[in-house]
Each structure stands twice: as C-alpha cells, then as structure tokens.
Design a protein around this nucleic acid. Sequence first.
DNA 1: GTCTATAGGGCGATAGAC
DNA 2: GTCTATCGCCCTATAGAC
Lengths: 209, 209
Amino acid sequence: MGKPTHFSTKERILAAAEELFAQHGFAGTSLRQVTSQAAVNIAAVNYHFGSKENLINEVFRRRMDVMTADRLRQLETALRDHPGQLEPILAAFIDPALALAQDRNGGAAFVRLIARAYAEHNESLRRFLSDHYGHVLREFGKALSGLLPGLDKETLYWRLDFLAGALTYAMSDFGLIKRPASASEAAHRSRAARELIRFAAAGLQAETK
Amino acid sequence: MGKPTHFSTKERILAAAEELFAQHGFAGTSLRQVTSQAAVNIAAVNYHFGSKENLINEVFRRRMDVMTADRLRQLETALRDHPGQLEPILAAFIDPALALAQDRNGGAAFVRLIARAYAEHNESLRRFLSDHYGHVLREFGKALSGLLPGLDKETLYWRLDFLAGALTYAMSDFGLIKRPASASEAAHRSRAARELIRFAAAGLQAETK
DNA sequence: GTCTATAGGGCGATAGAC
DNA sequence: GTCTATCGCCCTATAGAC
C-alpha cells in the first residue's frame, strides 16, 4: 500500500465500504451508497472487486492482516520479556484491537465491523476469517495454557471466548458506559483495555469447581 | 418447523420476523420473506404493525418483558436466600438469558437478535430498549456494589459491560468453541452459563491497581 | 381482516462507448 | 479504467374489492 499521495479508486471504495458497512451493516449498505461516498462510478465496484461479497472480504483482509501480525509479534515479545506473566499475554491480544480502534483512519469503524461479522453469521465471511486468522487464537491458547497448568483446555477456550466477546463489545463502544465529557475517546478506550486485562486475568485464574 | 396455523396472523408474523431477523438482520430481511414464512398476506404487516420499524420493536417487547421480569425476580430471591454471595446474583442475570436461549419456540433466535441490536446501533431500537429495560442493569449494579465495597462505581460498570458482552456472545453461539457431537445444545449452553458465572465472579473481584 | 394489484423506487450487475 | 445507460428484479407501502 505504501504512501500514496492520492488515493486510488480501489482504495477509496475500500474506505467508504468499511465506514458504511460499520454504520449500516452489509445487507443494509448498497453499492450505490458506497460508490457515491467514494466519489467513483457505480460500475467501478464490479470492475475492481467482482461482487459485493468479495468487496466485504477485502475490507476485512486490509485490517486483519495488520492486527494479526501485531498480535503475534506482541505475543512473542511478551513471552520473551515477561515469561510467566499473564497480563502481558492478554495485553498482546487486546492492545492491537485497541490500536485499531484508536486508528484515525477508519480503524474505529472496522472494530464495529468485527462485531457485525459475529452478529451477522455470514457464513462466507466466517469461513474466510477462520481460514485466514484462526491460527492466532490457537497461538494464544497455547501460551495461556502454559501459564495455567491446572486449567483444562475446554475451560480455557470458554474463557477465551468470553474475553473475545467482552473485547469486541468494549472496543465497539456498545456498552452502558457513557464517556464523561472530560475524557477523550482515546483515553476512554485505553481505560477499557486496561480494565479488561485485569478482569480477564482474574477470570482466567478462577478456580474450577 | 411446522406451520402453526392455529396461531393468529399477528403471532405468526412475530414468530417469523424473529426467526428471519436473527438469521438475516433487520435490513437483510424483507417483509415479503416474513409474510411468506408466516403464511399470511403481504399487506397484513402493515395492517397489524403499521411499519417494519414498529414490527421490530414488538418482536423485542415480547421476549424482553419476560426476561426482565425473570431477572428481577431471581435477583430478589438471590438477595434474600443467599445474602452476601456473588454468584447467585450473577446467576440471576445470566440464567434468564440462558433460559431464553434454551426456549424451544424462538428464544434461541431472539438471543442472537440481541447481539444484532447491539451491533446495528439502530438508534430507534436502542432508545426503545433503554427506556423500557435500562432499570434492570441499575438494579444489578446496586446489588453487586453492596458486595464489592472496595470497587468504585466506574470500574464496576466497566466490568458489568464486559459481562454483558461475554454473555451475549456466549448465548448467541458465535464463539470459537464447537459443541462436541456428544453434548446436546442445551447442555452446551448450560455449561457456558456456569463457566461464565465463575469467570465473571473472579473478574468482578479482581483487585484494582 | 384478508385479499389482489400496483404505485413508485432502489437494488446488483453488466454491456458497450470512450 | 472509467463512463453512461439500462436490464430485470425485489422492495415497502397503500388503495380498494370482498
């Protein structure tokens, strides 16, 4: 992608699609809205992406490749620099999502899109995400398993699921908590990430009855 | 599913709408699909509900009234029969959602619909839900606050948000965990609820740094 | 209360000129 | 690569017969 001095038609379509999909959902967004917001011709979507479904996949790929690489790199660092500690591993999982949510250029919309992807049960998209990014969760499962020797794998995966659900909600700003006017949106989300790390660390260490 | 012709037109529309909204979203479901599945005429929606938006509200009201009453009743029971205990309060919040998810007649679809309501950020629907059911969360916040005296209100509300996110995901069957063929769907969800109660109880009690 | 019919408009996708 | 024009379809909502 580099540093374009001007954005191509393809990039403008991706940015507009991301924003509109986050706002109105996949089914609720028409390609006409997308091309209108991107200030390109309606026929350009078909030319560059072939179909609406493939456009959705590409919107995800653009962000997920970055976030996935971040998570795995930070996991490696956490295991090396803080061996035996739970919270750095959780931070490696949570912080890249936070960074995306803080991203000035569309990342916040994308995080809401992840919540939609869960909710919409779009089978084609789920398969795409599972095929391309499923290995990340297995890596984190392995790392956490090493630190929680008394925890059976099944219970660990339940707890990882709870973490993923809570993270998606917290980063998507769906919650009950109204940001006080005094706090910036960035500070609000950072607080959420720190709180979630503590909450999840305690939850993961809960004794099994 | 058989066509329940002994139900009224209005009830058949509500049931079909709930199922299809959960499956395809609000924007992704047409009133034609609804009336076709309900085996009623297309004009019946407008006659009985006035508009698609009002149909959505009524689909929510039908289930939320029941779940809300369950939660508050179980909360009262928990405070009376198990004073000073955290997990019964969490169970009072979680079990009614579980019961809905186990409901043989549409409840499972409805739980997925809650996740959609969060994700879709439908302002009209959010106001409807907040106006009619917001007091439940305040009640639970009060009850938990009494048991966690060292916890400031802000942190408590963050943690309640994490619980709500995790619960919505777990009950909606969005997670990584694949149900083993040996376990029934009901047993799988019951397990999720029990696991979440332990996870959340530990998370709520985490020390604040 | 339920029906048929249709108004009036947005949709995804494509053909073909430039 | 981008444009205009258009096809054929599906949509919500309503009018009016029964």
